[in-house]
Design a protein around this nucleic acid. Structure first.
Lengths: 179, 179
DNA sequence: TAGACGTAGA
DNA sequence: TCTACGTCTA
């Protein structure tokens, strides 16, 4: 029951519907939505190259939402310890490389949003906010990517993803082989 | 359902029996056995001072088991970043202070063991071991504590706990008010 | 071994 | 803000 032995699933997860909420990252892991505890990009190998299977937007990076069906996701890495600032270049490896490859393969990518709510401001610390739950937001495809330059002249990758038309309900794509 | 709002429980948790297994620390949190994700000592305030409610032994510290009913638990803190070595003094605060106070109050302390199993040694890394699950081990009382001196001349607290006689089964102490 | 959009509490 | 016996993957 607890044995997921590294098998990644591409596309929708049987039994998980768009809008389903989860309290902890570990729950995303258990149901198979996202097999990482912290990393925002999950990926698998397919035909000799890695492709993205799911991403989590938790607010730790700079992600824009222009349109309900379009999102811009920042690549991972480039943070320097202490200050948690982006001073180093992001590299085209791991999750970033997987997202780039997914542009060509046009595969489905599961998207999970971290929903925040303002906590009571009794806190003596400035944060005052907290991720309360994660919401499965359905299937997207990576359209294209570009590079931006951060304040320290560092390289940041940006990926534009668009929701798959008519596939908001994961059941409609179950057992889909195309990608 | 997910709202535990900081309420700590002293003694056994209804529905949780000795020997129950859990995969992740977050599960201990959810059922109420131990309300911390990483810290090994949970505690609450009682009559103006803090007392320990539960401890987790995960193997990260030096804990001895002389006798099935007696265990020695190391205090927390004193680790220096990088190397994860004990070079600094542990302080009589937080969880350590709570355990000391529990000697006087003689309150029940829930004990959870992390059980390890050897993983397949395919790993290129030296570890080869992994905590597979946590086991609820029943109720204990803190008998006494002492200080030891580490390699760097640093102070380490040690606590001896003894299993509560006849209380291996938590149901027999449910609703107990004595502590 | 080191890094990763983790978490809560003090 | 920082610490805490976290967890996994590469």
């Amino acid at each position: 029951r607890w044995d997921f032995s590294g098998e990644a699933i591409l596309g929708s997860i049987p039994g998980v519907e768009v809008g389903d909420k989860f309290q902890f990252r570990v729950e995303l892991y258990i149901v198979g939505l996202h097999r990482h505890f912290e990393s925002g990009i999950d990926y698998m190998e397919k035909n000799g190259k890695i492709i993205a299977t799911s991403i989590v937007l938790s607010g730790g990076y700079d992600n824009d939402l222009y349109d309900p069906d379009v999102l811009v996701y920042s690549g991972q890495g480039g943070k320097s310890m202490h200050g948690n600032k982006w001073t180093k270049d992001q590299k085209l490896e791991g999750g970033n490389l997987a997202l780039v490859n997914s542009i060509d393969t046009k595969n489905f990518v599961r998207v999970i949003f971290g929903s925040k709510e303002v906590k009571d401001s009794n806190s003596i610390y400035s944060r005052g906010k907290k991720v309360l739950y994660y919401v499965y937001n359905g299937l997207y495809k990576v359209e294209y990517y570009w590079q931006e330059t951060g304040c320290s002249g560092n390289c940041i990758f940006k990926f534009q993803l668009r929701r798959v038309e008519g596939h908001s309900n994961p059941h409609s794509v179950k057992n889909s082989n195309k990608m």
